[in-house]
Nucleic acid binder design. Structure first.
Length: 200
DNA sequence: TGCACGATTCTCT
DNA sequence: GAGAATCGTGCAA
């Protein structure tokens, strides 16, 4: 079952944890591919300096973060890779988002391998990083702003993940964010070999 | 109009 | 473990 829009209308930290174990599905002309979310990060703008929407910065790029909850916020990073976020939050118009950092491939693995030739056929390396995850699912800026509550690009319910299985850590790649970089706003499933390796 | 840089990944040593 | 690849964005000029 596809997660309802209400699911995203909660604060970013809550949704980031709740998304663990859910399934991201992308249906394309090439076929269907899907993965279980095993790692996320919360971005609580506009007070979060690590967020692109820090201080309410509203531009062409961040526009979708201010839009309706449950839509995809996808952007290009380092001119090479895409990162996939979902717009969330209790307050309408407040730019909160959850970044998907890693997936466990569950469907269309062959197709994912084809898109991620660098993984060398290693399933673990197919989507254990934000840029990899997008490449594996065939996500690019064309999917930016899409509603993830309806096909062909959506998130559906998955096996329940108990609190004991959820590990908390600091976010990655945001050293420039002063005090915000130390916030324990990264969540992942304990003992899961599919989470991105880097730590601290 | 121009310029520096990033919510990263891959390859080679 | 270091360095390159690569381009849209944000801000200065």
């Amino acid at each position: 079952m596809i997660l309802p829009r209400e699911f995203y209308k909660r604060d970013a930290l809550t949704v980031a944890k709740a998304l663990l174990g859910k399934i991201v599905v992308h249906e394309t002309a090439e076929g269907r591919s899907a993965g279980r979310i095993v790692e996320t990060e919360a971005y609580v703008g506009p007070e979060d300096k690590a967020s692109h929407a820090y201080q309410g910065l509203r531009t062409k790029r961040t526009e979708t973060q201010f839009g309706e909850k449950g839509h995809a916020y996808i952007y290009l990073i380092y001119g090479l890779y895409y990162c996939f976020n979902v717009v969330v939050g209790e307050v309408s118009g407040k730019p909160e988002a959850v970044l998907m950092r890693a997936l466990e491939p569950v469907e269309g693995i062959q197709l994912m391998s084809k898109r991620r030739s660098a993984a060398g056929g290693n399933v673990v390396k197919l989507a254990n990083g934000p840029g990899k995850l997008c490449a594996a699912l065939g996500i690019s800026n064309r999917q930016n702003g899409l509603d993830v509550c309806v096909p062909p690009f959506f998130i559906q319910d998955g096996p329940v993940v108990s609190d004991e299985e959820i590990e908390t850590a600091t976010r990655i790649g945001v050293d420039y964010a002063d005090e915000w970089k130390n916030k324990p706003w990264r969540f992942y499933i304990r003992n899961c070999s599919f989470v991105s390796v880097r730590n601290k």
